[in-house]
């Protein structure tokens, strides 16, 4: 038991070391200059040197990602509830939600900038656009796929529509909602960075990670450019970790996916 846990850490660690070794070997062997491919050490050094601006940029991006994520989750949930409420509402609106989803953010971004201006509101809007569809699609599925027998149980109990929503549909849709939320959580930091890249600004002297990427690229500060990638990865893991925790918190006591059968 203990050795397998050790192996679970050791195996990826060995792979990681091997990859870093390969990286150094390729850079040295082909004499690749740093502005094209910095070494892992140089990236780490750049991340440390630029820690001030990178941290402020990360905070800006996290703010955009969080706001966009919450907007996507709450609007998505309410919309899904409306769509799940009646097949007619779903038939009337679902195609247009799909159309919205098909629209690439690179086309929506300039529109948002036109409407909302450069900066946070546009970034939040872009993050929202990326995250809300998975929430709507999954949660709607949850609302409509309520167990038939349980519905009949509520019918036998003469439950009102409101009672059915509160005690049956919402709890029943929870696993689906959380799955949508997981996807939205994975996409939120990416959405915020893309949003920042397309519609970011440094008006208050601080841009987000996407904005920094452009800045470092134009200055050919390649190690710092790679360091922004590193920061983005860490942010992504934090988001996914947070959402996974929430998922576990709400479902671990009863849902099949979490329950351990001994």
């Amino acid at each position: 038991m203990k050795s397998t846990r050790l192996m679970a850490w050791l195996q990826p660690a060995i792979t990681g070391l091997a990859l870093i070794g390969l990286w150094y070997a390729v850079k040295a062997g082909f004499k690749i200059p740093t502005f094209v491919l910095p070494s892992p050490g140089e990236i780490a050094q750049a991340a440390w040197d630029e820690r001030g601006p990178l941290l402020s940029a990360a905070m800006v991006t996290v703010r955009g990602a969080l706001l966009g994520f919450f907007a996507a989750v709450s609007v998505g949930f309410l919309l899904a509830m409306a769509l799940g409420f009646s097949p007619r509402i779903k038939a009337s609106f679902y195609p247009y939600i799909l159309i919205l989803q098909m629209m690439p953010v690179t086309i929506l971004a300039p529109v948002f900038v036109l409407w909302l201006g450069q900066g946070l509101p546009s970034i939040v809007a872009i993050t929202f656009m990326i995250g809300f569809f998975p929430v709507v699609a999954n949660t709607t599925m949850g609302f409509v796929s309520v167990d038939r027998n349980l519905r009949e149980l509520f019918l036998m109990c003469k439950a009102t529509r409101a009672q059915e929503v509160r005690y049956l549909r919402i709890p029943g849709a929870m696993p689906y909602f959380l799955t949508g939320m997981k996807i939205a959580g994975t996409l939120a930091p990416i959405g915020a960075i893309v949003g920042d890249f397309l519609a970011g600004s440094a008006e208050n002297g601080v841009g987000g990670i996407g904005f920094m990427t452009i800045a470092y690229f134009s200055q050919l500060k390649t190690p710092a450019l790679f360091a922004t990638g590193l920061v983005a990865c860490v942010m992504g893991f934090l988001f996914v970790g947070g959402v996974n925790w929430l998922h576990w918190r709400l479902l671990h006591s009863w849902h099949d996916s979490m329950v351990k059968k001994e």
């Binding site: 167990d147 149980l153 005690y167």
Partner: peptide, 11 residues
């Protein structure tokens, strides 16, 4: 009504 399976709410 008592249903074929126990028909309990898992949550």
């Amino acid at each position: 009504f008592v249903f074929q399976d126990a028909n309990l709410m898992p949550w």
